[in-house]
């Protein structure tokens, strides 16, 4: 059967925007700074790449203001791979986001890894057709971002440290509070909304469904296959790996190992196999050794 005429297409609906995040579940999104790294990421089985000028570890070392990437760099990465390409805009910097949308990136990350452009306001993400991912350290922050139009949430962790402790803290906080909400009665939900500084209807919805209305991924400090498995077992639906891959001694096999670990996160035998002989991971730093807590950015 062939239907005559044309089908009316509706783009950029909430379902279409959240839909791409659904397709990334169970996968690994890798930070890349050039076309060559994008190829390595795709070859290793990444479901998407995050194009940025410097990986968080270098932003941390170099200091200064971290901004949106040069469009030429984003275009080079788009040309080099066939998987979705995401890119970062500064918190509140809607002009950077407009540029990224004009570049047709597949997702925009309004990211605390870059230097914030606005210390009060986040981007109105409903005003864009390209979907947004935002970081969160707790459930209230996640719900505020969703109420501004974010279509994917990633727990922030502490980017560029190679230390998974903050990712675990944030993921546990978000997932743990969701569990508590499902047990709360109506008056308690009013109180939860106040404490979380989040819209009551979203709080009530989560109490009902037991999950965020958008996919929940994990980011910030993951460096090994075991880290990916830990995040997935704690309730993340996919993982972002930034400095952890391209700051390690041998990126390609590590990238592939993290991909396999994310799929087989419940299977320790596979985790043994993929963790073997991966070479030196990124060195990593303790939380008491850092001056800037990127996770504190976001309001």
């Amino acid at each position: 059967m062939s239907n005559e005429g044309t089908n009316e297409r509706t783009t950029a609906t909430v379902r279409v925007k959240r839909g791409l995040a659904e397709m990334l579940k169970g996968g690994v999104i890798m930070d890349v700074v050039n076309a060559e790294q994008a190829k390595i990421a795709e070859d290793a089985g990444a479901v998407a790449v995050m194009a940025l000028e410097r990986v968080p570890a270098d932003i941390r070392t170099d200091g200064g203001v971290a901004r949106m990437s040069d469009p030429a760099m984003v275009e080079g990465i788009q040309a080099a791979c066939s998987i979705p390409v995401m890119a970062k805009a500064r918190i509140g910097h809607f002009a950077e986001a407009q540029i990224l949308q004009a570049l047709k990136v597949d997702y925009i990350d309004e990211s605390e890894v870059l230097t914030p452009a606005d210390e009060t306001h986040h981007i109105d993400k409903f005003a864009f057709d390209v979907p947004f991912v935002c970081g969160a350290t707790n459930l209230g922050e996640a719900l505020r971002r969703i109420s501004e139009g974010a279509c994917m949430i990633r727990s922030k962790g502490e980017a560029g440290t190679g230390n998974v402790v903050e990712a675990v803290r944030h993921l546990r906080s978000i997932v743990g509070d969701i569990r508590k909400l499902t047990l709360a009665d109506e008056p308690e939900l009013f109180q939860w909304a106040k404490e979380l500084r989040a819209p009551l209807p979203l709080v009530q919805e989560i109490a009902e469904t037991g999950e965020l209305p958008v996919p929940l991924f994990c980011a910030g400090g993951l460096a090994t296959p075991a880290d990916a498995s830990l995040a997935m077992q704690l309730g993340a639906q996919a993982v972002f790996v930034g400095s952890g891959i391209f700051k390690s001694a041998d990126p390609a096999p590590r990238a592939r190992a993290i991909v396999e670990a994310t799929t087989n996160y419940m299977n320790p035998e596979v985790l043994v196999k993929v963790s073997r002989n991966l070479g030196t991971p990124m060195t990593g730093i303790g939380m008491d050794e850092i001056d800037v807590r990127m996770a504190d950015r976001g309001w």
Partner: peptide, 12 residues
């Protein structure tokens, strides 16, 4: 095309 071209439509 890329994500911007993703869409919904009614199918017969």
């Amino acid at each position: 095309g890329r994500q911007l071209a993703s869409f919904e439509a009614d199918l017969e």
